[in-house]
Each structure stands twice: as C-alpha cells, then as structure tokens.
C-alpha cells in the first residue's frame, strides 16, 4: 500500500514520535512511503537545531536519519518553515538570515507537494492535527 505521512505537531509532542514509529512500521511491513510532508509546527522536526536532553529521544535527529537511510522523499512546507524559522541555505540567503537549519534529507517545497503525493497514495495518514 502507498502511504503519505503528514506531521503537524512539534518534535516534543507525542504525535511526532508516533508518526516516526508509524513510518518505520510502514516500511517494515513492506509498504511504500510516497512522501513525508511536515506542515504547521511539524516543520520543527526537520530542524537540525533541535537539542534533546541526553536521556530523551532526539526525534528530529531520528527523522533525519530515517529519511536519509531510506532515501525517502521528505518535504517541509516552505511557507510554514519560513514562518517558524526552518530555512535551507537558499532561503537563509534570500531573506538575509544568519543561518540555515534544515536537517539533512529534507527539502523545502510548496503545499502542491502534499496534494501531488495524496493523488498517488492509497492512504494519507496525518499526525498531530487538531
């Protein structure tokens, strides 16, 4: 089955951990992840600047490893990212900000990417919505 997984809640929320474990289970079950899409406060889980306490799960780092290791299509909504300070090098330069913090494996793109993926997917599974 083809899945799109969307995350709307911040990295310190239970939803971010559930989404990560669900995504791992999707692949372990032999299914396909068409795209991961981080929106709203979910964009913070694609920041390389999140620091977890030593005895806590570093969910942002785990996401980055998971996306890179499985060569997944990981998209962070650009408008939601800009609004919350999640920038890649290009956007940091464009808006003259001192640093880029988008973690490895992710790319900034538009909401069209969510719709495009949803058209291909059997299931759109959202985590951390209201």
């Amino acid at each position: 089955m083809k899945f799109v997984i969307a995350l709307f809640a911040p990295p310190h929320s239970p939803a971010a951990r559930r989404a990560l474990r669900f995504a791992e289970a999707v692949l372990a079950g032999g299914h396909e992840i068409v795209r991961l899409f981080f929106y709203q406060d979910g964009v913070h889980s694609a920041s390389a600047n999140v620091v977890a306490a030593q005895d806590e799960l570093d969910v942002a780092a785990e996401w980055s490893r998971f996306v890179s290791a499985n060569q997944l299509d990981g998209v962070v909504c650009i408008a939601a990212g800009l609004r919350r300070g999640v920038l890649d090098a290009g956007e940091a330069q464009r808006y003259q900000r001192p640093a880029a913090n988008l973690a490895a494996g992710w790319e900034l793109s538009g909401l069209g990417q969510l719709h495009e993926a949803a058209q291909q997917a059997d299931r759109l599974v959202c985590f951390g919505g209201q």
Partner: peptide, 30 residues
C-alpha cells in the same frame, strides 16, 4: 482523489486557520 479539509481553530488562535485555507488554495490551483 478528493480531500476534505476540516478547519477547527478560531482565526485569532494562531496560524491554523490561515494554514488550513492555504491547503485548500493550493489544491484549488490543481
């Protein structure tokens, strides 16, 4: 495939109302 967006936040309660609308507008473009 069709999509229903359910918007549950007041317009003054942060960016959720705006961000729900943006999903709708992006899909409308397609």
């Amino acid at each position: 495939r069709s999509m229903l967006i359910i918007s549950r936040q007041a317009p003054w309660a942060g960016p959720s109302a705006r961000e729900a609308l943006d999903i709708v507008l992006a899909g409308g473009a397609f």
